[in-house]
């Protein structure tokens, strides 16, 4: 399922276990990493100062975890639409993400349930780069039932 435009929201009833989320690809540059770190108010030097990162045993600056959770929420709502609400997100970090790499977000619907007037969708997601799994995790997204706002 894909949406007509950025103001459209998926119809909960049309979503099925096994559905794949549209892949999100992030071409990671130093600018991407620094912009994300500062927008999340994370001033740890390992996320903006290469020389400092070297002193911590890292070959370059690397993406901060607040950027990872931000991209996860974008990945989920790029798919589900603006009426979607991210109820839960749980991620584990694996390999780091450095400038010059490409992050590829993939995900799949693994469960569907209903709670009152909310339709709930369980998603497993992953972001990989040239070194391996950068992020792996699970999320729960809710959609209003009966009014997609489309």
């Amino acid at each position: 399922m894909t949406r007509a435009d950025r103001t459209a929201t998926l119809d909960w009833a049309s979503i099925a276990v096994g559905d794949e989320l549209p892949t999100l690809i992030i071409d990671v540059t130093a600018t991407v990493i620094v912009a994300g770190a500062i927008a999340t108010r994370d001033f740890m030097p390992v996320h903006h100062d290469r020389a400092y990162a070297n002193t911590q045993g890292a070959p370059d600056i690397f993406m901060n975890i607040l950027s990872d959770t931000a991209y996860c929420s974008r990945f989920l709502t790029d798919w589900a639409g603006p009426q979607a609400m991210v109820r839960k997100l749980a991620i584990r970090l694996g390999v780091p993400t450095f400038p010059g790499s490409t992050l590829t977000y993939t995900g799949q619907v693994v469960g569907i349930s209903r709670s009152g007037d909310e339709g709930l969708i369980d998603v497993e997601l992953r972001a990989t780069n040239n070194l391996g799994d950068h992020v792996s995790g699970t999320a729960v997204v809710s959609l209003p039932i009966g009014d997609t706002g489309a």
Partner: peptide
């Protein structure tokens, strides 16, 4: 002295 984040789990009650 090194610090590295490894897990982050959120439950969001409302926006």
């Amino acid at each position: 002295v090194g610090t590295l984040a490894s897990n982050s789990e959120f439950e969001i009650m409302r926006y």
